[in-house]
Amino acid sequence: MLSRIASSLFWIGRYIERSDGTARILDVHLQLLLEDPWIDEDTACRSLLGVMGSDAPDGVLAREDVLRILAVDRTAPASIVYSLSAARENARRAREIVSTEMWECLNTTAARMPRKVTSDKVHEFFNWVRDRTALAVGIMDSGASRDDAWHFFTLGRSLERADMTARLLATRSLTEASGPSWTTILRSCGAYEAYLRTYRGVPSARNAAEFVLHDRLFPRSILFSVTRAAESLRDLEPRLERAGVSDRALRLLGQIQSELEFRPVAEVLDDLPAHMSSIQEATSAATEAIRRRYFPENVAPSWMGDAR
């Protein structure tokens, strides 16, 4: 496969997942700002922009500013509209590989993105974004052969999901006194009902964090996402060496797996932001290693204020 095509498929997967994750995080936290009058809105908005890797503008910030910057600003790399437009552009570059259904899905989504979202349509907009990204993923999963094209798409999507879940968990500590509850965190990543079926009880900090971080069966957990990314790397280039692992990206993902597998969840909760930051740094380093290995001529798109 041409490196140009591999790069496009990898970033289609990442941008689709980034759009979905950003919509989930914003849906939770903008609603929280609306419902809780005791939150310092300016501080919370700046913290949220920081977690999402976007620089905060001067002046007092409100939820409308966050919505504009992270949802509909076509020049902000962390925004939803930027990600969906970039996914569409990468699909155009790989048109000989991308299916007609996928192209039409991404093209229609980018064309219908609004330039402004009114306050009464915010939740509806985020639901629409999640529906469109789910459609794109469903098209790929249900209609694509499990060849290199699918593995590059899945590799990008899995790395981005691990990163976005880490960002979501990092927001738990934005405002400790009135930050989102673990029930809200679980709902925001589509994990609440799966959690209830697994633990059969009201979410506690330990159980909820363990589920989203360490569960091997839940597809949105960080461990599941990292494991899926590592499997795609092995399928793209099976190991030939008898000892050790020579692929840097695979080593980095293996180190994350080991941390998640063997570090007690209580230790993670003691300093959740630091542990989530280390996961984001590792996924960024793995992305750079993949770029150098498979598509070195391309510069990896980056979040503002982020190493990627």
Rank of each mutant, 00 (worst) to 15 (best):
A229S: 06
E96N: 09
E101M: 10
S225F: 02
L233T: 04
A249Q: 05
A300D: 03
A191D: 05
V117N: 06
S302I: 03
G244N: 08
D58H: 10
R293F: 06
Q255C: 05
F218D: 04
L272E: 10
A134W: 01
F10T: 02
A78M: 12
S225T: 01
I69V: 14
I222D: 06
D163G: 06
L26N: 07
L240M: 14
L196R: 14
R68I: 07
D36R: 03
I39H: 07
A249I: 06
I290H: 05
V122T: 14
P37F: 04
S85I: 05
G201R: 13
L213S: 02
T183N: 09
R228K: 09
E210P: 00
W38Y: 13
K116C: 07
T184C: 03
E237T: 15
L32I: 07
I97F: 06
R167F: 07
V98L: 09
D163L: 09
F262T: 13
A243W: 13
M102D: 02
R146K: 13
R63P: 05
F152C: 08
M113G: 05
A44I: 04
E101G: 12
C45A: 14
S85R: 14
R197E: 15
V202P: 04
R46N: 09
G143P: 03
F224N: 11
S277V: 01
E96I: 14
R200Q: 12
V265M: 04
D20K: 07
G244S: 06
S83V: 04
P301W: 00
T108M: 08
V98D: 06
A144H: 10
R263Q: 09
T43E: 13
D270L: 10
V137S: 13
M276T: 08
R14L: 01
R92E: 11
R95S: 14
P219I: 11
D147F: 09
R167H: 09
Y195A: 05
R242H: 08
I12C: 02
A91P: 02
S232P: 00
V129I: 15
E17S: 09
D306V: 02
T227Y: 00
P114D: 03
R187C: 08
N298C: 03
H275K: 11
I16Y: 00
S173C: 12
W182C: 01
A144F: 12
W303N: 09
Y15W: 08
K121L: 12
T109W: 03
M102A: 15
P264W: 04
I16V: 15
Q257S: 09
A300H: 01
A162Q: 04
W303T: 10
G254K: 10
D120S: 12
V98M: 08
L33M: 09
S99Q: 07
F211Y: 14
S178A: 05
S188C: 10
G254R: 11
P219W: 12
T283A: 01
R234C: 07
R187M: 13
V226E: 03
R63T: 07
A87H: 06
S85L: 07
I256G: 04
R248C: 00
E259Q: 13
P264F: 02
G190A: 09
D20T: 01
V81W: 00
N90R: 12
A6N: 11
S8F: 04
V81D: 05
S83Q: 11
N298F: 08
A136S: 15
C189A: 11
A208C: 10
Y199G: 04
D247M: 10
R220T: 15
G179W: 04
Y195V: 07
S142V: 00
